[in-house]
Nucleic acid binder design. Structure first.
Lengths: 334, 334
DNA sequence: GCACTGATTGGCAGCGCTGCCATTCTCCTC
DNA sequence: GAGGAGAATGGCAGCGCTGCCAATCAGTGC
């Protein structure tokens, strides 16, 4: 129905100028509140804008001037709550500063990442935000050549291209291990998801087992789920792990989703937590604070990561690495 | 460090043409694989593209031709898993069809929505995707005048502007009530979050209490949390509700997050579910299937909503309303 | 060898806006 | 009233690409 009305081409700045009886540059100046013009002119222009329903064309504006004020996010997943949280932190800052967020999802695939980065760069964004430091050679080359800011998020164990905001996953894994050891657990298992693709989970695991090894209590066993992480696969993973190793006294999960699955498995099968089995997660999801026993975990600054990253970009900060740290949350499952 | 290298302006199509010894239009044709050119020319162009690291400028391309292939999402929230799920469903389809997703978050505020829609329209997107049918007069006017496709998501109770994809929230509420009634529950309470802002939750609640009323078992009591929904507020809400009404035999929650909070409260306080109190949610989150007792809920096609919406847009389908329905999941909490 | 058809190719005018520069107005100052 | 400093304004050349059209080239039939 509205289709008939659709194709009258959109109002242009020139038409507004005509309608207001002023020059194009005057309209442009008024709309951007930049340069000088009289109050009377301003009113006349705004009246015409209002009357014609003019919406500036930023495609044209960007081409003519410089910055697109577009910030591109190339993220691995939207199922993993981490990334919506980062986007959430960033979007507030970006909106306040008249920037726009564009995103695409790589599904943890470096080749897709490469293709998507290329597609994003075609929009000449102000900045590109990526997860972590592991990128293909070509991706890195494109980013370097692009001239736009690059922010690598949620990791610190690697070399930054330009800006980096996050925390050390390796240290998070180590801290988790040290905590469990200090609590006296010795027969510790691990339940995780695909570590090759999710390199940050891989780094946590490396830090974790490294610390266990250093303390003379190496990882007893582990169960890796081939796909992504989920509550369901956490439950299943723990079930399988326990079927092999009944003597475990603690299990470290690759994140809270998995850990909650494990916790529910214990609840459902009468496994006393933590006396029979301790459970430790990662992320510090809200839900983990409300379970009958609050989940022991590492709380990560996901929203802040997005916020800070966006702030660095809109203020055009010099290249730097920002360590936001993490916080160990001592729940009741350890 | 790379900052020094940054400001050599990006390679342009003209430079590629020069380097390959062909005309600009030939390069353009080769890159878009559109029109005809010889194999030899193609190779020569691609070689130059490769060598110079050329990345097409879609800002310029869009200005010169037509479609931006940008799809704008103006969503209420990223904390509510519903919206990441919708984005997830859409992003796959969009990426496969060389479209890009831009988004911004209104925080359930119609005025912010208005401002953000205006900002989005400045990019001349192919389509704008919004949540629900409730928009300000000015928002509607801008959208109608914009000439771009409009998709209203996740609701069916209202009048569509152009395309709509979702399901009836009112019917979901009604179905939930009828299910509880059929199970014999009569003293039913409600725990929810801010219904004025989240109009879809409001419609579910309306459908729910309407059905209860029609069956002669009107809602016994309700507890509304002023802010957004969360597991924590669900727990707290149930606690408060039960403090007032010890005699309830079932509680309907505005969504699964809230319901899980309520369920955890029961687990922690020895309230037998469902014999003492039945719990019913909404959304059908994965986690609800793995709790010791699977949660009774309504499963909504969130990812499919995003996917279908994107498909309609990329295929430029005629205006229509797509009802994706929902599914009642009979868990063990009722 | 010549006309004819269709495949290839290059030239160039915009797309709608911004930035620069020149011009015109205002308002003071002396 | 002349001279001068700004303020206010308009004109117009691009930004980098695509779409259109004209020009050129290659292959075919006779």
């Amino acid at each position: 129905m509205t289709l008939e009305f659709r194709h009258h081409p959109a109002v242009t700045l020139a038409e507004v100028a005509e309608a207001a009886g002023v020059g194009e540059s005057t309209v442009s100046r008024v709309l951007r509140d930049h340069g000088s013009f009289s109050k009377k002119t301003r009113d006349r222009v705004m009246e015409a804008v209002e009357r014609l329903g003019y919406v500036p064309n930023r495609i044209a504006g960007t081409l003519a001037s410089a910055g697109s004020r577009l910030v591109a996010f190339v993220i691995p997943s939207l199922s993993n709550i981490v990334f919506p949280d980062v986007l959430r932190g960033a979007s507030t800052v970006l909106e306040e500063n008249q920037h726009q967020a564009v995103f695409s999802v790589t599904d943890y695939d470096p080749e897709r990442e490469e293709a998507l980065v290329a597609a994003m760069l075609a929009w000449r964004p102000t900045a590109v935000m990526l997860a972590g430091f592991e990128h293909s050679e070509r991706t890195l080359k494109m980013l370097r050549a692009s001239g736009c800011r690059v922010v690598e998020l949620l990791d610190l164990d690697g070399t930054a291209l330009d800006l980096a905001v996050g925390y050390s996953n390796r240290a998070a894994g180590r801290t988790s291990a040290e905590f469990l050891l200090k609590r006296g657990y010795r027969r510790i298992g691990y339940v995780g998801h695909d570590l090759d693709r999710d390199t940050r989970a891989g780094k946590r695991f490396a830090g974790f087992s490294e610390a266990l090894g250093a303390a003379g209590a190496p990882l007893a066993d582990r169960e890796i789920h081939a796909g992504g992480s989920s509550v369901e696969s956490g439950r299943l993973g723990l079930e399988r792990l326990l079927a092999r190793r009944r003597d475990l006294d603690a299990v470290y999960f690759s994140n809270d989703d998995m850990a909650l699955g494990g916790y529910f498995h214990c609840l459902a099968h009468g496994i006393a937590v933590p006396s029979q089995l301790a459970i430790f997660g990662y992320n510090g999801l809200d839900i983990g604070r409300v379970t009958p026993q609050p989940l022991s975990t590492i709380r990560t600054p996901r929203v802040a990561t997005g916020r800070i990253a966006a702030e660095l970009v809109v203020t055009n900060a010099p290249p730097q690495v920002v360590d936001l740290g993490f916080e160990l949350v001592e729940g009741a499952t350890t």
